[in-house]
């Protein structure tokens, strides 16, 4: 079975050796499209949450408004940390294409650290707000705020846990088409969360500070 590694339960399509490693087995390239579609549905999910947030923004029920609540320094640091982590995540993919396992792991660790910084600031922001009486139960606006931003935050948490598993696999197996595919999927997930954050930054925080 010379071509065992390229077989898939569907059919054999010849694989172009010039494509990046993560596409090298047909099974992998199927999973990559599948994952893009998954991100597509995730985008719809976030869109629904955004729509709900926009409807709820003014419904403060006498409680704190976005203008009173949002802390510019906090959300700026979060934004910088997450945007920068997208860059380091890109560097990890770059090193993966060049086959440098240790560099990949190094950049993943940097990304992970930035992700944790982001999460740390987010959690402390939430704790601070709750301390002021701005809880999920306080008003429609706050419900929508916590759930939209929190859904993004829990996605980031999943990304952090996921990539920890991948580090073990990289250490054990090195860069193979399968591990490359896994790291690649995680990286597009991470970039996607960054893109969602840009919307949260503008729609929730920037706009919320002004109106």
């Amino acid at each position: 079975m010379s071509n065992a590694s390229t077989a898939v339960h569907g059919d054999h399509h010849p694989v172009d050796p010039n494509v990046p490693l993560e596409y090298h087995e047909e099974e992998n390239s199927l999973r990559i499209i599948g994952f893009w579609l998954f991100l597509g549905q995730d985008m719809i999910l976030f869109s629904s949450l955004f729509a709900t947030y926009i409807v709820m923004h003014g419904r403060v029920a006498g409680g704190p408004t976005s203008q009173q609540l949002f802390d510019v320094t906090g959300f700026t640091i979060e934004t910088i940390a997450l945007l920068f982590s997208s860059f380091t995540c890109g560097l990890a993919t770059y090193e993966m294409r060049r086959g440098h396992r240790n560099a990949v792991i190094g950049w993943i660790l940097v990304t992970l650290a930035l992700g944790l910084v982001f999460l740390g600031f987010e959690v402390s922001e939430f704790i601070h707000d709750v301390g002021l009486g701005a809880t999920l139960q306080r008003s429609g606006f706050l419900s929508a705020f916590y759930i939209l931003v929190g859904t993004h935050g829990s996605h980031v948490t999943v990304g952090v846990l996921w990539v920890m598993l991948l580090i073990f696999q990289l250490l054990r197996r090195g860069i193979t088409p399968v591990t490359a595919r896994k790291v690649f999927l995680w990286s597009i997930y991470w970039h996607f969360l960054d893109a969602v954050w840009i919307f949260i930054f503008t729609v929730v925080y920037l706009t919320g500070k002004v109106i």
Binding site: M56, R59, A61, Q137, R138, G140, Y146
Partner: peptide, 9 residues
Amino acid sequence: SHFFTVDGG
């Protein structure tokens, strides 16, 4: 929370 309640916005 108060997404769809009558009170609390």
